[in-house]
Amino acid sequence: MKPPPFRHLAPRSIEEACDMLAEHADSVRVLAGGQSLMALLVMRMARPAVLVDLNRCAGLDDIAVEGGVLRLGAMARQIAVQRAPAVAQAAPLLAEALHWAGPRAVRNRGTIGGSIAHADPSSEACCVALCLDARVVLARRGGSREMAARDFFRDALVTAAEPEEMVTEIRIPVLPPGTRCAFEEVGVRQADLAMAGIAVALTPAPDGGIAALRVAAIGAGGLPLRLDAVEGALRGRRAEPGLVRDAVRAALAECEPPSDLVASAAHRRAVLEGLAERAILRAAGAERAAA
């Protein structure tokens, strides 16, 4: 469990980093918090010739709300995101979810950009990014582009980022007033990688019904997924237990959860049903369903 040889480059600016990425694009990786990349290196599952280490790179860790958008610098540590007042105000769902994102020591080092760029199937950050219609900003030498999280995530551990690109920022639209969030997850252990998880943002209508609903799931597919069918079925309705249960069940029946050592597809689906129902009812402020 020792990494193969690599060159370590430590740019001071985004421009410098982009130059390095362009120059070594045939075999390069960005090093952020290292909480996933180091494990890949020591198990020799990733063998980049060059690491571009962003830890000394300026201008990448701001957390701020501007023009109705929460902007998270890619190198903002997960713990900082979790605790930032701007996040509590604009996207409390993210703070609630990051609480689950591994042990404290890992969140102290791990970055929000790293979590998004890594696109792990169990990532809370990716699930929330999907749920809240986040956008991912990618920089490269001489330019940058921005895309919806939905388009950014391609497959487990695969994203739309090109080798010469780096994530510089995650942008999350500030939640509409009155929106209520809930995040639920389950692993084998009390604190564990998520085997199944649900993120919900629910905006109530003045009449007590659901004006808008966004639901994303971990464990429903190879990647975190938006459960569009649930959203459609419940929009404009009241969050009543039976209705929610049916909507959730119908949506999950269309999903293909993975089967692995942690759980079978059937178990993931069964657990997600319970979690989704619980999370939606919690966000709706409704009474818990009778057992």
Partner: peptide
Amino acid sequence: LMERLVHDEHGQLLTTTLLDYTLPTALD
């Protein structure tokens, strides 16, 4: 409640990291 070493049918050990081999933590 959670620990188990798993082999596939060829005798390949599938649980060779602490990610796959789940030990209880203090919270459990």
